[in-house]
Measured scan of single mutants.
Amino acid sequence: RRRVRAILPYTKVPDTDEISFLKGDMFIVHNELEDGWMWVTNLRTDEQGLIVEDLVEEVG
């Protein structure tokens, strides 16, 4: 499975499927959606939700 790491922190918009995260958080990518969004699991918090790919980098 594809893994990505947050390069910046992010605070979710209330009442959306987004998740908040810290710089350095690792995610497993489940689905890549339109307009650069990804459905992921945050490995630190075990939370699932949407993040935008501009805020993460690939992990080898």
Results as ranks from 00 to 15, higher is better:
E18S: 05
N31T: 14
P14D: 10
R5G: 03
E57I: 10
L55V: 07
T41P: 00
L8M: 14
G49C: 01
R1D: 12
H30E: 11
W39G: 01
V40K: 00
T41K: 07
T45P: 02
M38I: 11
T45K: 03
G49P: 00
E32L: 11
N42T: 02
G60F: 14
E32M: 13
D17K: 13
E53D: 12
G36I: 03
D35R: 10
D54I: 09
W39I: 06
D46I: 11
V56S: 04
R1H: 15
D54G: 13
V59L: 12
K12E: 04
V4M: 08
I7Q: 06
H30V: 08
I28N: 08
P9Y: 07
P9Q: 11
V56T: 12
M26N: 09
I28T: 10
E18Q: 14
E57F: 06
T16F: 02
Q48S: 12
G49E: 01
L50T: 10
I7T: 09
E53G: 13
M38A: 04
T11V: 13
G36H: 08
E18H: 05
E34A: 13
L33T: 09
L50R: 15
D15R: 08
D15K: 09
G60K: 13
F21G: 00
L50F: 09
S20V: 02
K12C: 08
E47F: 04
D15F: 13
A6H: 01
E18Y: 04
D46V: 10
T41Q: 09
V13L: 12
E32T: 13
V4D: 00
N31I: 14
R3I: 15
I28H: 08
D17I: 08
L33E: 07
N31D: 15
V13F: 10
H30T: 06
L8V: 15
L33A: 09
S20N: 08
A6D: 00
L50Y: 09
V56G: 01
H30Y: 09
W39E: 05
V56H: 01
L43I: 12
V40Y: 00
V13S: 14
G49F: 02
R1N: 13
M38Q: 03
E34L: 12
V40L: 01
M26F: 11
D54P: 07
A6F: 02
D46K: 14
D17W: 11
V4S: 02
D17Y: 12
Y10I: 02
P14Y: 07
Q48K: 12
T11F: 09
L22H: 11
N31C: 10
R44P: 01
V13H: 13
L43Y: 06
P14C: 06
Y10C: 03
D35F: 11
G36D: 04
R3N: 08
S20F: 02
T45F: 01
R5D: 02
L55E: 03
W39R: 06
N31K: 14
A6Q: 01
G36C: 05
E57M: 09
L8W: 12
V56R: 01
L33F: 13
P14N: 10
D25K: 00
V52Y: 15
M26W: 10
V13T: 15
D17F: 13
F27A: 01
E34S: 13
M38D: 01
W37I: 07
W37T: 09
V56M: 08
V13E: 11
P14E: 13
D25R: 00
L50C: 09
E34Q: 13
V59Q: 07
H30S: 06
L8R: 14
I19H: 01
P9V: 06
R3W: 14
V13I: 14
D46P: 01
K12R: 12
N31E: 14
D54V: 11
R5H: 06
D54W: 14
I51H: 01
D15N: 14
P9F: 07
M38W: 05
E18I: 05
G36W: 03
L50W: 11
K12G: 11
P9R: 08
S20Q: 03
I7Y: 06
P14V: 09
V52N: 15
L55G: 04
R1A: 12
V56Y: 03
L33M: 11
R3A: 07
D17T: 10
G60N: 14
D15Y: 12
A6L: 01
M38V: 06
P14G: 08
V52I: 14
G49Q: 00
V29M: 04
L8Q: 15
M38G: 01
E47A: 07
L22N: 11
D46G: 13
I7H: 06
V52M: 14
I51Y: 01
F21Q: 01
E18C: 05
H30W: 15
L22W: 11
M38F: 09
I51M: 04
E47T: 06
G36Y: 04
L50I: 12
V56A: 05
D46A: 12
E58K: 08
F27V: 01
W39V: 06
L8K: 14
F27I: 03
F27Q: 00
L8S: 15
K12V: 03
T45I: 02
F21A: 03
M26L: 15
N31P: 01
D54Y: 12
E57V: 11
G49A: 01
L50Q: 08
T16H: 03
N31Q: 14
E34I: 10
R44I: 04
E58Q: 10
W37K: 11
W37P: 02
E18W: 04
L33V: 10
D46E: 13
R3K: 12
N31V: 15
V59W: 12
R2I: 06
N42S: 10
L55T: 05
T16K: 04
G36K: 08
I19M: 06
L43Q: 08
T41N: 04
S20K: 02
D46C: 12
Q48V: 14
M38S: 04
P9T: 13
W37N: 06
A6R: 00
V40E: 00
V29T: 03
E47G: 04
V56F: 04
L8G: 14
M26D: 07
V4Y: 08
R5Y: 08
D25I: 02
V29Y: 02
E32N: 11
I28W: 10
A6N: 00
D54M: 11
S20L: 01
V13C: 10
D15S: 09
F21M: 05
L50D: 02
P9C: 09
S20C: 04
M26P: 04
S20P: 02
D46T: 12
F27C: 02
G49W: 01
V40A: 12
L55C: 08
D15H: 13
F21C: 07
T11I: 13
P14M: 09
R44G: 04
E32W: 06
L8F: 12
H30D: 07
V52D: 15
R44N: 07
R2G: 06
I7L: 12
E57P: 00
Y10V: 02
T11W: 08
K23A: 14
E34F: 11
W37Q: 08
L50E: 05
N42H: 09
L55W: 12
E47Q: 10
V13N: 14
F21T: 02
T11P: 03
K23Y: 08
R2T: 07
V29F: 03
F27H: 02
D17Q: 15
E18V: 05
V40D: 00
D15A: 10
G60P: 14
S20R: 02
I19K: 01
V29R: 01
W39Q: 05
E32K: 12
G36N: 08
R1L: 15
R3E: 10
T11S: 11
R1P: 15
E32F: 07
V56C: 08
E47W: 03
K12Q: 07
N42W: 02
G60C: 13
D54Q: 11
E47K: 07
G24Q: 04
A6P: 01
D54L: 12
G60D: 14
V4W: 06
T41H: 11
E57G: 05
T45S: 09
N42R: 04
T11G: 06
V52H: 15
L43E: 12
R1W: 13
D25H: 01
V52T: 14
E57N: 06
A6M: 01
F21D: 00
E47Y: 04
R3P: 06
I19N: 01
R44Y: 05
E34N: 14
M38C: 04
V40N: 00
S20W: 02
V13A: 13
F21E: 00
T41F: 06
V59G: 06
E57R: 08
E58R: 09
D54R: 14
D17A: 13
T45R: 02
I28Y: 09
D17M: 14
R5F: 07
E53W: 13
W37H: 09
V4T: 04
R2P: 07
V59A: 12
I51T: 03
V40F: 00
N42K: 07
T45L: 03
